[in-house]
């Protein structure tokens, strides 16, 4: 079986990313409302912005789709003058790359809760690395920086880890994921019975 992405994989992945683009519009106000409080509470819901990647790769189960999904979401932001523009492009790219690395670490063999939560942490790490350069977070008071990092990792693990798995499980129940997923060994075993 070819490891390269087919047109249908690409199209499905990009469309998943765009759906998240719409969901982000619902989520955006939640994050903005929490922001002025200052105690980094908004970091708890930051993980929502990592979600497109893990969900895309959990649905398609093909190498590269997490990176593609995050890039597509970021590209959409750039082309349609979304909040942040070119900034979101770099953040999306870095987050997609780190999500992808988590799945690569398990050689694209495992698509369970553990890997997905790890991929969420990866995306959080990627965003923190960019924040060092772009937002000078190391120049924050120690306790504030600690809150920022802890809250972001908790949020990433819960939203783009646990919630992503729950969401894809629910999608499995609708039967739509079997359209795009590659045939697994279980499917062949059914034929042998």
């Amino acid at each position: 079986m070819s490891k390269k992405l087919k047109l249908s994989d690409i199209l499905v992945t990009i469309v998943i990313a765009l759906v998240f683009g719409i969901i982000y519009k619902l989520w955006g106000p939640v994050s903005t409302v929490l922001k002025p409080l200052g105690f980094q509470i908004d970091q708890l819901v930051y993980g929502m912005w990592f979600m497109a990647g893990p969900v895309a790769i959990l649905i398609t189960r093909k190498p590269g789709t997490a990176l593609l999904a995050e890039t597509a979401a970021a590209m959409g932001e750039v082309l349609f003058a979304g909040q942040g523009g070119i900034i979101s492009f770099y953040y999306g790219l870095a987050q997609g790359l780190f999500v992808e690395l988590a799945f690569l670490f398990f050689r694209y063999k495992r698509y369970d809760m553990l890997v997905t939560v790890l991929s969420g942490f990866g995306a959080a790490l990627a965003s923190l690395i960019l924040d060092i350069g772009f937002g000078y977070i190391f120049e924050l008071a120690g306790w504030n920086l600690a809150l920022n990092i802890i809250f972001r990792f908790i949020g990433a693990g819960l939203i783009s880890g646990v919630f992503a798995v729950v969401l894809v499980k629910a999608l499995d129940a609708t039967g739509v994921t079997s359209l795009v997923r590659p045939v697994s060994k279980d499917d062949y075993d059914v034929l042998d019975q």
């Binding site: 249908s8 199209l11 499905v12 998943i16 765009l18 719409i22 969901i23 609708t174 739509v176 795009v180």
Partner: peptide, 18 residues
């Protein structure tokens, strides 16, 4: 919202690719 939008969009994308 996510489930409804995702399932419909995935079906549509798959059909378009085919």
């Amino acid at each position: 919202y996510a489930i409804a939008l995702l399932s419909q969009s995935i079906r549509r994308a798959q059909r378009t690719a085919v």
